[in-house]
Design a protein around this nucleic acid. Structure first.
Lengths: 344, 344
DNA sequence: CTGTTAGCGCATTCAG
DNA sequence: CTGAATGCGCTAACAG
């Protein structure tokens, strides 16, 4: 095990002071060309590597952002993470990650850790059951910018990048109505989730525009587990006026619901049509996918979150703390059709 | 913007020394109960948070591991990352990420950064074209343990967690032979990739066991881009003795190849059967998936890599540097059938 | 049981 | 142009 060389080692070798070395390494203009070159030479000879931990410590700046998402193995979040990492790396920033796994306590502890690390900023997609936003107050107090991503809290004074579902939902409903559907079911997510409320509202709005009276029986919800997804679909099938089309919270829900339909010897997209929200990049090469999926642009949303975050980080460097502006990026979800012909 | 309180602030408030505060905060036994309690009280009052950057700096230990993968948005790597993060967080370790995007220079620069950060260890899945392993020598010299994951280099003195494809390949070939196939094609990945060599070798071995002579025309390869995947399949279809079954490098390749088959008005799994290697968790709910897929256990492989890494990290704390042991975990890939009945 | 001191690696202010 | 001195926040060896 070898000792990693420090600035002092190269100072000693050259019999000059550490500060000169430091300056030379940074190309400081006040250092003579010869000295600078000699320093650089020895530095690379010794394989000198600046100790980032020390620099972060000294400068109170870590050049690192944190990204907290519920589950990296979900395609939607994985795409977002990938895009955020790419963006950050182009800004020469590092990325620290945390996975809440939908557990508010774990989420809280991750945030705590990131705060302790003095990360320069955080992008977070809330867990499903996060109720307590007190820690975000603290982060604000200590000037650690936070950008919410996709799953945003119902607060006013926040920055976020999210998706406006209404346009996509409207397109979906329009499309189903046009195909003659009148009983359109909704398998929603858990009601505390902002995303669920939004789906529900836009579902009602969209149907309302066609003068269709809302039938509450056609609205069921699930905690997004496979079991409950399936149970939700079973409840829809048990209705006397079964839906002829179903809008699913996301692709996983659609998958489970479609499985139930099949197991009841009904034909997907014939007996019951589906439209879902896109978390999976897979329907495009599946034989009998839903009619359509509503794209939510994980990469674009992620990049936007990163853009906002870096704007906030950069603006901190300014002297005058201008009046707080809250950045809110809202993408219009839009429907992507998977099939031109119906199965019939 | 408020100043984040330090250990000194607490000390001042209580008119005691900083070291006493430090010890109290750590529950050091030599500190009086009253003092300890008073310190804790003020600490929580002030919302004291230890500065991890300072601690890392001081202790020369970051409690952070790095994970470098080619692309987080690929399901296989996303699952692995998720599992590794989960494992690390249970060990109270943080995770730094980097995405090589198959670019050796970017990979190199990420490794450099992680070295600068004095990360306690690194898990890496190499980019497709990494040729230069010099930096790994440096990391070893500076005692930063590295565990290779899935895409491993052809070196001897390394730790890794990977997948032994042979058993899965054998099962696949056995299965196809049993169904009467004799012309079995292979769409392989780029030849520099260890994973490609392994597939090729095990393909030959597996066929050899059935006494089948290798027909080199049936072996094509692709750089894994959609274009080349499709081109590879077209070449197979252009042969005078077309294959009746194809083993694909991974699920993406299979997808593209199957698309070509369809566009040639042939029926997948009827005219040409497919078996692929599993990177996607999706075939299980697709109507006409490949016959089977060879599971490579991303989560298990990832966890194993983490286990090895932490063992290495822990063993560094020991006095006697025991003779170097190289940890090598090899999972047996195994075939998962998706369909009992053929389409015929 | 507690205070004093020193130092981790580096950038920076102040003196030359 | 360069060196000496300082301190970031914290821990630990050394004194009491």
């Amino acid at each position: 095990m070898e000792k990693i060389p420090t600035i002092k080692d190269i100072a000693k070798r050259l019999k000059i002071s550490a500060s000169t070395v430091s300056r030379a390494l940074h190309g400081h203009p006040s250092i003579g060309l010869v000295t600078t070159m000699r320093v650089n030479k020895i530095a690379s000879e010794l394989n000198y590597i600046p100790n980032k931990a020390a620099i972060s410590f000294k400068q109170g700046k870590t050049c690192t952002i944190g990204v907290i998402l519920p589950d990296f193995s979900e395609a939607f979040f994985a795409s977002a993470l990938s895009a955020i990492e790419d963006y950050a790396s182009k800004k020469s920033y590092n990325v620290f990650i945390g996975q809440s796994l939908e557990n508010p306590e774990k989420e809280r502890s991750i945030l705590e850790t990131m705060k302790n690390h003095r990360l320069d900023g955080i992008i977070i997609s809330l867990s499903k059951n996060t109720k307590n936003f007190e820690i975000f107050e603290q982060l604000k107090k200590y000037n650690i910018p936070v950008v919410f991503f996709d799953r945003i809290p119902g607060l006013n004074d926040i920055h976020y990048s999210a998706c406006n579902l209404q346009p996509g939902m409207q397109q979906a409903v329009d499309c189903l109505i046009e195909k003659g559907h009148r009983n359109i079911g909704l398998i929603n997510g858990p009601s505390p989730l902002e995303a669920s409320k939004e789906r529900l509202d836009s579902y009602k709005t969209a149907l309302g525009k066609h003068g269709i009276v809302i039938n509450d029986d056609l609205i069921v919800s699930s905690d997004l587990s496979s079991t409950q997804n399936q149970y939700a679909m079973r409840r829809l099938l048990s209705l006397t006026t079964k839906p002829t089309a179903v809008i699913a919270f996301n692709d996983y829900v659609a998958r489970d619901a479609m499985a139930i339909v099949k197991s009841n010897n009904m034909i997907v997209n014939h007996d019951i049509s589906f439209i879902s929200f896109a978390n999976l990049p897979i329907w495009s090469f599946i034989d009998n996918p839903p009619l359509a999926s509503i794209e939510q642009f994980p990469k674009e949303q992620g990049i936007k979150a990163a853009e906002i975050l870096f704007e906030l980080i950069d603006s901190q460097l300014e002297e005058v703390p201008s009046a707080p502006v809250f950045h809110r990026a809202l993408f219009d979800a839009s429907m992507v059709s998977y099939r031109v012909n119906s199965v019939a």
